[in-house]
């Protein structure tokens, strides 16, 4: 179980500046359980996109986007719709957004912030990992997480230890920022690499989600069980 919270609409709107057509993808796994990714949220986002003048090329809700092999096969069936879109808006956790980024040759916008449940891990063993930092940056990093793919968790580009695409720490480890650079180049969004990412709000995942933000059904069940 992974817990996400919707990003503010204004933030998502900012991501979509410059895109005319958007394919909307939701997840029927954990995010559906919390109401942040399933059909209901996708419907709501679709309405907002329509209102804002975007052409929604299609919507799809896939069960557990983090199951990359299955998600890939399902997306392949609608590849023409995706192909004619400028970008994808994905309402899922950070793992799902990263998985979709890897499957699709388009800019992938995250619709959620994945939040910490106090070091509880997700269910899907996958190379895409999410630190549940509560302020998802995947929009700016080509759908590759700098917190987990860069050993130093750097937010503004590679360090001096990056060479020929490898990390200074282990000879075979890829440099996360090199992957991000290549990905942004491939999707024609190299402009994003010079976007300044400010220091992280560490408290968002140091102790889990602050009580006042625990407004989802998941937390309600937890609280119930605790009593």
């Amino acid at each position: 179980m992974i817990l996400s919270e919707p990003k503010p609409w204004e933030e998502i709107e900012g991501y979509l500046e410059g895109d005319d057509s958007v394919f909307l993808l939701g997840c029927d796994g954990c995010d559906a359980a919390t109401g942040d990714g399933g059909a209901e949220r996708v419907g709501e986002l679709s309405g907002k996109l329509d209102e804002g003048g975007w052409n929604v090329t299609g919507t799809k809700v896939i069960e557990f986007l983090c199951n990359k092999a299955l998600a890939g096969m399902k997306l392949a069936r609608i590849s023409d719709l995706i192909e004619e879109s400028d970008s994808l808006l994905v309402s899922c956790c950070g793992i799902g957004v990263q998985a979709v980024s890897k499957l699709v040759d388009k800019q992938v916008h995250p619709a959620n912030d994945t939040v910490s449940m106090g070091d509880f891990h997700g269910t899907w063993p996958s190379e895409e990992t999410c630190k549940r930092c509560g302020e998802c940056l995947l929009e700016y990093t080509g759908g590759i997480c700098p917190l987990t793919m860069c050993v130093k968790g750097l937010l503004n580009g590679a360090c001096g230890g990056s060479y020929e695409g490898k990390c200074e720490v282990e000879p075979d480890r890829p440099c996360g920022w090199e992957l991000i650079y290549e990905r942004l180049k491939d999707v024609g969004r190299l402009d994003l690499i010079e976007e300044y990412n400010p220091p992280k709000a560490r408290q968002k995942y140091q102790f889990g989600v602050p009580m006042e933000n625990r407004n989802s059904l998941y937390w309600a069940i937890e609280a119930e069980e605790g009593e």
């Binding site: 050993v151 130093k152 968790g153 750097l154 937010l155 503004n156 580009g157 360090c159 300044y196 400010p198 220091p199 992280k200 560490r202």
Partner: peptide, 9 residues
């Protein structure tokens, strides 16, 4: 390893 900030920050 700390890396709370990076060189640009």
């Amino acid at each position: 390893p700390v890396f709370d900030l990076d060189s640009i920050q």
